[in-house]
């Protein structure tokens, strides 16, 4: 029974952002779910809500999701003002309803940033991040067959740092959390994962330069070192990476010979 602490299910009040498309104004709409299992993931709760809406002949809530196991970076919602919700180091799909209490009212909004226009309801267009990656977030070499293990010596500590940076799933929670709509945590992770490794050295100057220039061309703000990004990151990427990109960028400024685009080379 709803409101009864001994019951296995919870009554959850939702305020969900509904917006038909990029051009029209959206608003928060109230929904109530009477029997939410604490073992449901946050997205499964939305599946239940959508089933109800479809049965009633209403349009289901659009939300992005794919792997539902915390590794793809598709799911993106702001839950009670926090990207991916109140639990740290967790994507929305890995957030479970046991993190909430019976009778809670939960406000769900899309990631908000000028660079992430709302496509519909909770779905935003995050392709600006892809364009930054395409500007330099790679290593341009023919890799051939898998190299012999330890052919290039890399210390355990550095390998771990690079791996931590590479854990970024490009979900955009850092941009969503930032009061400036800055993508610096994302870009810094993508720069760091290669800057830390020998294979990334050959293109270090052009990589950081072109990725930062592309970031500025998109509608991202600048970093003011508030740290909300790292607190919101489901992969717990650290702001240490932002200090690293600041160093990399200074190196490129002082020593690099970087043309603006690949086509200019």
């Amino acid at each position: 029974m709803a409101g009864n602490n001994n019951s296995r299910t919870m009554r959850i009040n939702l305020k969900v952002w509904r917006q038909q498309n990029e051009k029209v104004q959206g608003n928060l709409v109230d929904y109530t779910l009477d029997s939410v299992s604490p073992d449901m993931s946050f997205l499964e709760m939305f599946d239940v809500l959508n089933e109800q809406l479809v049965k009633k002949g209403e349009e289901p809530v659009a939300f992005a999701h794919d792997c539902r196991e915390g590794i793809c970076g598709s799911c993106a919602m702001v839950i009670d003002g926090e990207p991916h919700g109140p639990q740290t180091g967790t994507t929305t799909c890995q957030l479970h309803m046991r993190s909430f209490s019976d009778g809670d009212t939960i406000v769900v909004e899309p990631f908000r940033a000028k660079a992430f226009p709302v496509v519909k309801d909770l779905v935003t267009n995050r392709t600006a991040l892809d364009r930054i990656q395409a500007a330099g977030g790679y290593v341009t070499v023919s890799t051939g067959n898998a190299p012999d293990g330890n052919a290039i010596p890399i210390s355990k500590e550095i390998a771990d740092l690079a791996m931590d940076a590479a854990a970024c799933i490009q979900c955009g929670a850092c941009v969503a959390a930032c009061r400036n709509g800055s993508a610096m945590l994302f870009v810094s992770a993508k720069v760091s994962q290669l800057a830390l490794l020998p294979q990334g050295q050959a293109e270090r100057d052009r990589r950081v330069s072109r990725m930062v220039w592309q970031m500025d061309e998109e509608d991202f703000g600048s970093c003011t070192n508030m740290g909300s990004c790292a607190a919101a990151c489901p992969k717990e990427i650290k702001v240490e990476n932002i200090a690293r990109i600041n160093r990399e960028y200074a190196h490129a400024m002082l020593f690099g010979r970087v043309s603006e685009r690949v086509s200019d080379e």
């Binding site: 702001v78 003002g81 990207p83 909004e109 908000r112 940033a113 709509g181 909300s228 919101a232």
Partner: peptide
């Protein structure tokens, strides 16, 4: 670049 903030202000460390 951040025209709208959220309806709810975060309570935890996710705030600045």
């Amino acid at each position: 670049t951040k025209p709208t903030l959220y309806a709810v202000t975060p309570k935890s460390a996710k705030g600045a």
